[in-house]
Simulated scan of single mutants.
Amino acid sequence: MTQDLNLSGAVLIAMPGMGDDRFDRSVVLICAHSDDGAMGLIVNKPAEELAFSDLLEQLDIDGADEGRDIRVHLGGPVERGRGFVLHSGDYDSPGSMTIEGGFGVTATLDVLQALADGGGPARAILALGYSGWGPGQLEEELARNDWLMLPQAEADLIFAEDAGGKWVSHLRALGVDPLVLSPAGGRA
Protein backbone atom coordinates (compact mmCIF):
# COMPACT_ATOMS: atom_id res chain seq x y z
CA MET A 1 0.00 0.00 0.00
CA THR A 2 2.68 2.55 0.97
CA GLN A 3 5.43 1.07 -1.22
CA ASP A 4 5.02 3.86 -3.79
CA LEU A 5 3.96 6.50 -1.27
CA ASN A 6 6.45 7.93 1.21
CA LEU A 7 4.96 10.84 3.10
CA SER A 8 8.06 11.68 5.16
CA GLY A 9 8.43 15.46 5.05
CA ALA A 10 4.81 16.05 4.02
CA VAL A 11 2.45 18.20 6.06
CA LEU A 12 -1.06 17.16 7.04
CA ILE A 13 -3.62 19.90 7.56
CA ALA A 14 -6.70 18.84 9.49
CA MET A 15 -10.00 19.34 7.70
CA PRO A 16 -12.88 20.94 9.61
CA GLY A 17 -15.15 18.34 11.13
CA MET A 18 -12.64 15.49 10.98
CA GLY A 19 -14.25 14.03 14.08
CA ASP A 20 -11.20 13.89 16.38
CA ASP A 21 -10.95 16.91 18.69
CA ARG A 22 -7.31 16.09 19.46
CA PHE A 23 -6.47 17.12 15.90
CA ASP A 24 -8.86 20.06 15.45
CA ARG A 25 -7.11 22.62 13.17
CA SER A 26 -3.84 20.71 13.54
CA VAL A 27 -0.81 20.92 11.30
CA VAL A 28 1.29 17.74 11.43
CA LEU A 29 4.75 17.24 9.95
CA ILE A 30 5.17 13.58 8.97
CA CYS A 31 8.54 12.42 10.30
CA ALA A 32 8.41 8.77 9.21
CA HIS A 33 6.15 6.72 6.95
CA SER A 34 6.37 3.08 5.88
CA ASP A 35 4.26 -0.05 5.52
CA ASP A 36 4.42 -0.29 9.33
CA GLY A 37 2.62 3.02 9.83
CA ALA A 38 3.46 6.68 10.26
CA MET A 39 4.74 9.07 12.92
CA GLY A 40 4.36 12.84 12.93
CA LEU A 41 4.50 15.90 15.16
CA ILE A 42 1.83 18.56 15.56
CA VAL A 43 3.58 21.91 15.07
CA ASN A 44 0.84 24.39 15.92
CA LYS A 45 -0.40 23.48 19.42
CA PRO A 46 1.73 25.27 22.04
CA ALA A 47 1.90 23.79 25.53
CA GLU A 48 0.86 26.99 27.26
CA GLU A 49 1.51 25.60 30.73
CA LEU A 50 5.13 24.56 30.14
CA ALA A 51 8.14 26.68 29.25
CA PHE A 52 11.40 25.27 27.89
CA SER A 53 13.24 26.55 30.99
CA ASP A 54 10.80 24.59 33.20
CA LEU A 55 11.51 21.43 31.25
CA LEU A 56 15.29 21.94 31.52
CA GLU A 57 14.91 22.38 35.27
CA GLN A 58 12.85 19.18 35.56
CA LEU A 59 15.56 17.29 33.67
CA ASP A 60 18.39 18.86 35.74
CA ILE A 61 19.96 20.41 32.65
CA ASP A 62 21.98 23.49 33.46
CA GLY A 63 22.32 26.05 30.72
CA ALA A 64 24.58 28.94 29.96
CA ASP A 65 23.46 32.54 30.24
CA GLU A 66 23.29 32.64 26.44
CA GLY A 67 21.11 29.52 26.37
CA ARG A 68 18.23 29.44 23.94
CA ASP A 69 14.54 29.38 24.71
CA ILE A 70 12.51 27.33 22.26
CA ARG A 71 8.77 26.84 22.12
CA VAL A 72 7.17 23.75 23.63
CA HIS A 73 4.28 22.16 21.71
CA LEU A 74 1.92 19.24 22.15
CA GLY A 75 3.22 16.90 19.42
CA GLY A 76 0.32 14.49 19.60
CA PRO A 77 -1.69 12.22 21.84
CA VAL A 78 0.82 9.33 21.99
CA GLU A 79 3.45 9.20 24.80
CA ARG A 80 2.92 12.78 25.98
CA GLY A 81 5.71 12.35 28.53
CA ARG A 82 8.28 11.88 25.77
CA GLY A 83 9.94 14.85 24.10
CA PHE A 84 11.06 15.31 20.50
CA VAL A 85 13.04 18.27 19.21
CA LEU A 86 11.98 19.02 15.65
CA HIS A 87 14.76 21.03 14.08
CA SER A 88 16.42 22.35 10.98
CA GLY A 89 18.73 19.95 9.16
CA ASP A 90 21.89 21.75 10.27
CA TYR A 91 22.04 19.69 13.48
CA ASP A 92 22.96 16.03 13.61
CA SER A 93 23.76 13.74 16.48
CA PRO A 94 23.81 9.94 16.81
CA GLY A 95 20.19 10.11 18.02
CA SER A 96 18.89 12.27 15.16
CA MET A 97 16.51 11.11 12.46
CA THR A 98 16.58 12.88 9.10
CA ILE A 99 13.25 14.00 7.66
CA GLU A 100 12.77 14.74 3.97
CA GLY A 101 12.99 18.42 3.09
CA GLY A 102 15.84 19.49 5.36
CA PHE A 103 14.42 18.71 8.80
CA GLY A 104 15.50 16.46 11.62
CA VAL A 105 14.09 15.16 14.86
CA THR A 106 16.13 14.29 17.92
CA ALA A 107 14.80 12.68 21.08
CA THR A 108 18.00 12.54 23.13
CA LEU A 109 19.17 14.86 25.90
CA ASP A 110 22.21 16.06 23.95
CA VAL A 111 20.11 18.38 21.78
CA LEU A 112 18.47 19.88 24.88
CA GLN A 113 21.90 20.46 26.44
CA ALA A 114 23.16 22.04 23.21
CA LEU A 115 20.18 24.41 23.13
CA ALA A 116 20.58 25.21 26.85
CA ASP A 117 24.22 26.09 26.15
CA GLY A 118 23.25 28.45 23.32
CA GLY A 119 24.07 26.08 20.44
CA GLY A 120 22.23 23.29 18.69
CA PRO A 121 20.12 23.63 15.56
CA ALA A 122 19.40 27.03 14.06
CA ARG A 123 15.64 26.43 14.28
CA ALA A 124 13.80 24.16 16.69
CA ILE A 125 10.61 23.43 18.55
CA LEU A 126 10.11 20.85 21.29
CA ALA A 127 7.13 18.55 20.90
CA LEU A 128 5.75 16.55 23.82
CA GLY A 129 4.23 13.34 22.51
CA TYR A 130 3.67 12.41 18.91
CA SER A 131 0.97 11.49 16.44
CA GLY A 132 1.02 7.88 15.30
CA TRP A 133 -0.84 5.77 12.76
CA GLY A 134 -0.88 1.99 12.35
CA PRO A 135 -0.40 0.23 9.01
CA GLY A 136 -2.76 1.73 6.43
CA GLN A 137 -4.50 4.01 8.95
CA LEU A 138 -3.11 7.28 7.61
CA GLU A 139 -3.91 6.28 4.03
CA GLU A 140 -7.51 5.57 5.12
CA GLU A 141 -7.77 8.97 6.80
CA LEU A 142 -6.44 10.67 3.65
CA ALA A 143 -8.94 8.76 1.49
CA ARG A 144 -11.74 9.87 3.88
CA ASN A 145 -10.67 13.49 3.38
CA ASP A 146 -9.78 13.96 7.06
CA TRP A 147 -6.59 15.73 5.99
CA LEU A 148 -5.32 17.95 3.23
CA MET A 149 -1.69 17.30 2.37
CA LEU A 150 1.11 19.67 1.46
CA PRO A 151 3.62 17.32 -0.22
CA GLN A 152 6.70 19.13 1.10
CA ALA A 153 7.04 21.09 4.33
CA GLU A 154 8.33 24.65 4.20
CA ALA A 155 10.65 25.55 7.08
CA ASP A 156 9.36 29.14 7.34
CA LEU A 157 5.83 27.82 7.90
CA ILE A 158 6.82 24.97 10.25
CA PHE A 159 8.96 27.19 12.51
CA ALA A 160 6.80 30.34 12.27
CA GLU A 161 6.40 32.21 15.55
CA ASP A 162 2.62 32.50 15.20
CA ALA A 163 1.54 28.96 16.12
CA GLY A 164 -2.11 29.95 15.90
CA GLY A 165 -1.72 31.10 12.30
CA LYS A 166 0.01 27.96 11.01
CA TRP A 167 -3.22 26.18 10.03
CA VAL A 168 -4.32 29.08 7.84
CA SER A 169 -0.83 29.70 6.39
CA HIS A 170 -0.47 26.02 5.42
CA LEU A 171 -3.90 26.05 3.78
CA ARG A 172 -2.92 29.16 1.83
CA ALA A 173 0.33 27.45 0.75
CA LEU A 174 -1.95 24.88 -0.90
CA GLY A 175 -3.99 27.65 -2.50
CA VAL A 176 -6.99 26.91 -0.25
CA ASP A 177 -9.10 29.65 1.32
CA PRO A 178 -10.02 28.45 4.83
CA LEU A 179 -13.37 30.24 4.59
CA VAL A 180 -14.55 27.95 1.79
CA LEU A 181 -13.62 24.66 3.46
CA SER A 182 -16.52 22.35 4.16
CA PRO A 183 -16.52 19.59 6.77
CA ALA A 184 -18.15 17.30 4.20
CA GLY A 185 -16.02 15.72 1.49
CA GLY A 186 -17.09 14.12 -1.73
CA ARG A 187 -15.92 12.33 -4.82
CA ALA A 188 -16.94 12.96 -8.42
Rank of each mutant, 00 (worst) to 15 (best):
R144K: 14
E141W: 02
G101Y: 02
L128V: 00
A122L: 14
S88Q: 00
A143E: 09
L128R: 05
R82L: 02
E139T: 08
L128T: 06
I125L: 15
G136V: 05
T106E: 06
Q137Y: 09
A143W: 08
F84K: 01
E100C: 01
A116P: 05
G83R: 08
S96M: 03
L126E: 08
Y91N: 13
T108M: 12
T98F: 00
R144T: 00
E100W: 04
I99N: 11
T106R: 05
F84V: 06
L109P: 14
T106F: 00
I125Y: 07
G101I: 03
D110Q: 15
L86G: 05
I125H: 12
H87S: 06
V105P: 00
A124D: 04
E100N: 08
L115C: 06
T98C: 01
P94V: 14
L109N: 03
G102T: 15
D110Y: 03
G118Q: 09
P94R: 01
M97W: 06
P135L: 07
G104A: 11
S96Y: 13
V105N: 01
W133V: 02
N145P: 01
R123A: 07
I125C: 13
F103N: 07
G83M: 06
G89V: 10
S131A: 15
S88A: 11
P135Y: 14
A116H: 05
F84L: 03
G101P: 07
L128D: 13
N145E: 12
D117R: 01
R82C: 08
S131Q: 07
E141V: 00
G101C: 10
F103T: 03
L109K: 15
S88T: 12
E141T: 05
G95W: 00
I125M: 12
V105M: 05
A127I: 11
G118P: 12
Q113S: 09
P135R: 08
L86A: 06
A122Q: 15
S88W: 05
H87T: 13
E141K: 11
A124T: 13
D110V: 07
G104Q: 12
G118E: 03
W133G: 09
T98D: 05
V111I: 15
L109G: 04
P94K: 02
T106L: 01
G134T: 10
G120P: 12
N145G: 04
R123I: 04
A114N: 07
R123N: 07
D110L: 11
L109M: 13
D110A: 13
L126P: 05
A122I: 00
V85T: 10
Q137W: 01
V105T: 11
G136W: 01
Y91R: 10
G136I: 06
W133D: 11
